[in-house]
């Protein structure tokens, strides 16, 4: 039994509210800083995924480290067109990832089908047809910076996790808006 599970078991029986939140915060902070990525690079976007992890953009500084094995990873980065023929393989790889896991859909192809939406008989129109996507990154291909921004966005989702079953630290996000009456 993993340590994490034992902690949550112990806390569940007692009045653990405050301690649980702090433990959650610690674990989620640690998780968020080292989101290892499974690069599911299928097409053009994979080139930008490689560029993002190499010297100039340097994914490692965010703790994101591409591992070619799904069993080592926390987040699946779907980079590239998914065809009907590829779909079962992607699904299977996703199922091989240990929980908790997240999915980043990189590029218009995995967001909606993108340029391959019309007139094609073999492309899956958006990865959310068969996978629970957490972060969408638009672009064809998105710049490496956008992908890194996606990981920063993903940390906010990670912060909602809790080790207690069924519990989440929901956060409300407010987008910056122009002030009423201010200069538009």
């Amino acid at each position: 039994m993993a340590l994490v599970d034992r902690i949550s078991g112990a806390l569940d029986s007692g009045p653990g509210g405050v301690i649980l939140t702090s433990v959650d915060a610690l674990i989620n902070w640690a998780r968020g800083q080292s989101l290892w990525a499974f690069p599911m690079g299928t097409a053009c976007c994979a080139m930008e995924l490689i560029a993002a992890s190499f010297s100039k953009f340097d994914f490692d500084r965010m703790g994101t480290f591409p591992r070619p094995d799904p069993r080592h990873t926390d987040v699946m980065i779907l980079a590239g067109t998914i065809t009907e023929k590829m779909r079962p393989a992607v699904r299977r790889l996703y199922e091989q990832m240990p929980d908790p896991k997240w999915v980043v859909a990189m590029g218009n192809c995995t967001v909606s089908g993108g340029i391959f939406y019309y007139d094609t008989y073999s492309v899956v129109r958006g990865a959310d047809e068969f996978l629970p996507v957490d972060v969408y990154v638009a672009g064809c291909p998105p710049r490496p910076e956008s992908l890194q921004d996606a990981i920063i966005q993903l940390r906010r989702l990670v912060a909602e996790e809790s080790i207690a079953p069924g519990r989440r630290h929901e956060q409300t996000t407010t987008l910056p808006r122009p002030k009423a009456g201010g200069d538009r």
Binding site: T42, G80, T83, A89, F116, Y118, D119
Partner: peptide, 14 residues
């Protein structure tokens, strides 16, 4: 064929 996107077919309607 895991990346067969049908570009040749798409071109016929562009």
């Amino acid at each position: 064929g895991y990346l067969h996107r049908g570009i040749e077919k798409m071109a016929e309607n562009r």
